[in-house]
Write a protein that binds this DNA or RNA. Sequence first.
DNA 1: AATATAATTCCACATAATGGAATACAATTT
DNA 2: AAATTGTATTCCATTATGTGGAATTATATT
Lengths: 277, 277
Amino acid sequence: MDILKSTNRKNPISRETGIKPGTGDTGTLGKGMEVLEIISSAGRPMRFTDILDRSSQPRGTLHRQMTNLVSEGLLAANADHSYELGLKLLELASSAWSSNEFRKIAEPHIRALQAETGETVHLGILKGRQIIYLDKVEGQQSVRMHSQIGNASPLYCTGVGKAALSAFPIEDVRKRLGDTEFFRFTPNTIASLDALVDELADIRRSGIAWDREEHEPGIHCVAAPVYSQHRHIAAGISATAPAFRVSRGQLAEWAPLVKNTAQQIMKEMAARLSPRT
Amino acid sequence: MDILKSTNRKNPISRETGIKPGTGDTGTLGKGMEVLEIISSAGRPMRFTDILDRSSQPRGTLHRQMTNLVSEGLLAANADHSYELGLKLLELASSAWSSNEFRKIAEPHIRALQAETGETVHLGILKGRQIIYLDKVEGQQSVRMHSQIGNASPLYCTGVGKAALSAFPIEDVRKRLGDTEFFRFTPNTIASLDALVDELADIRRSGIAWDREEHEPGIHCVAAPVYSQHRHIAAGISATAPAFRVSRGQLAEWAPLVKNTAQQIMKEMAARLSPRT
DNA sequence: AATATAATTCCACATAATGGAATACAATTT
DNA sequence: AAATTGTATTCCATTATGTGGAATTATATT
């Protein structure tokens, strides 16, 4: 009997943290997702055996799984026997994006913020131990999306990430990021959980988070937290600029605008997203 | 015994057309996809019973399905008991997009075309009876994506759609669009399969497709087909402009550029995407 | 042509999904 | 506040559905 076998029945999502206890392999669906995840994290087309090697599933099972994924359009089988993620994902994501309630509420506000600052504004939402970029409004010179919608980035080195995290008490943050490896993207990247927790205290106090070239050299931003009643949604908005064009002092001048925008979004969320109590 | 029950075993994808015979409900995975599809096509959050009504699955089954989808992040359970598509879809789609081989090949070429024409350029790929927009390079005035990446549009009223279709012989087109309803988006929309087949003949001859304000009033475009060896990939590129700013005559002047770009993409595809024969 | 490597199919078997019905929960109404 | 309706969730005996090791077929390499 296989040790790696899934227990399936009972792997409930913790409604509190939104973090899954076991790594998501809920039954048959989880097996399919494992495949998508493997290919996604590889970031390139893979052949059957490449996937088999990284997978916990036996040959036959994996193969049928992949056949099913292909027939649903979630996976695409190329002519050269490689597999890549399917177009159906784009289609579903497009719908997910345009009908997302939170994003729709935030949209006019971040657009206004973009107009006020003249710089690129991001909306990122917390998911597990990552920030997912939900929207982006660019300034004039469209440099081409380096931070693309749907992109997942770490929490500890992004303005929106730290802002979103600041909505939670210290204990939750420690639980959430307990076994996270802190990768040093730049010399300024926060390198430990303790250092992060320290900075979160400042952010909680001031309502403003910074990214001081901690993720990408030459890029910095001001951010502010946006969250719902019971942190069901935790997110952040930021105004981002290249350091050579915008000084840290100038960035600081936008802080009140960013914070104010965040508060307006929260006000509207309270009115529109919460169940009547 | 339930009549609607899936046969599962054996519902192979037709490698020729890429069209699924039965409407995708391949076993357990298909049941999950049905849910996502229902919510996607509704375009707004739905409650459990709303989904139940539109679904072919019984209560208990549907509920467990949805629980699993939530725990995989494909579905999000809101505080007010409504469900919307999950952020995991954005994450996967982001990866699908940036690692897509065909898109990567096309990217520099459509960017060059954008620079030459100064107008918005689209890359759309054929999937079933729809065009999925794979990329978009905008001109200066960013009017905001109305046609977003991942968006699915009909084949019969878009430049890229008609271009892509022109890669197939008439019989295939008739088979593919046999039971499609032709919705009149504008007075110019092609209203029947026969009329479409007629126009495809012209496109096949000239290598150029038009959208003469057939999808959105005031918007027209020139397009050209892009396809691989055995039509494994069938797509189109287009240069789009508002009619008030760019006349049809001007559009015609870009036709050779568009066609040439398409041919360059195809040349590169032949070299990079095909299995050695 | 022969060998090696990878992809796909098969099928007896048991696990994992099913689904009808009962229960818990929430929102209105009286 | 209690009753009523509507909605969401859990239960569990049953079996259909997915499993997975091994055989087969296809593709690449020598």
